[in-house]
Computed example of a mutant assay.
Amino acid sequence: MPQPCSIKDCTRTPRWVCDCCQQNLCLQHLNEHNDLLISQLNPLTLEIKALEDCLQALNIQKTIDNSREKLEEWRDDCYKKIDCLFEQKCRELDQVINEKVDQQREELNRIHLKITELIDAQETSRQDIDLLTSTIRQLEININNIEQICFTIVTSPLVIDDTFIFIKETTEHELDLSTLSPVYETIHRPKGSSGPLTCNDRYLLIHQHPNLCLYDREMNIVKQTLWRYGRIWDMCWSSTLGRFIVLEQNNIYLINENTMSINNVHSMKDRDWGACTCSDTVLFTSTNEDGSSIMEFILFPAIEMIREWKYPLTCAKDEIIDDIVYNNGNLALACAFKIVIWLFLRIMDINNTQNIINTDQHENTAHG
Rank of each mutant, 00 (worst) to 15 (best):
L204H: 14
E218N: 11
Y184F: 06
E174T: 02
T179H: 07
S181N: 00
Y203R: 02
D234T: 08
T186S: 11
V159N: 15
E147M: 07
L212Y: 05
F164L: 08
L204G: 12
D234P: 07
E147Q: 12
Q208C: 07
R202Q: 01
K223C: 05
N200K: 05
W233S: 02
H173Q: 10
E147V: 01
Y215M: 13
N220T: 05
I149R: 06
I167Y: 02
R228M: 08
T179N: 06
G192Q: 11
S181V: 00
C213M: 12
R228P: 04
D161Y: 10
V159R: 15
V159E: 15
E174G: 04
V222K: 12
I206W: 00
Y229P: 01
D201A: 05
K168G: 02
D201G: 02
T186I: 12
H209Y: 14
V154W: 01
W227C: 10
D216R: 12
R202K: 05
I187K: 03
D216E: 11
R189E: 08
E218D: 08
T179M: 09
D201L: 06
Q208M: 10
L226W: 07
K168C: 03
D201F: 03
R189V: 14
V183K: 05
Q224I: 03
I167A: 11
K168L: 04
D161K: 14
C213S: 15
E147P: 01
D162L: 07
S178H: 11
D161H: 13
V159A: 13
S181A: 00
N200A: 04
G192F: 08
T155P: 01
L180A: 10
H209D: 08
Q208F: 02
L180R: 13
E169A: 06
L175A: 09
Q148P: 00
C213D: 09
L197S: 11
T179S: 09
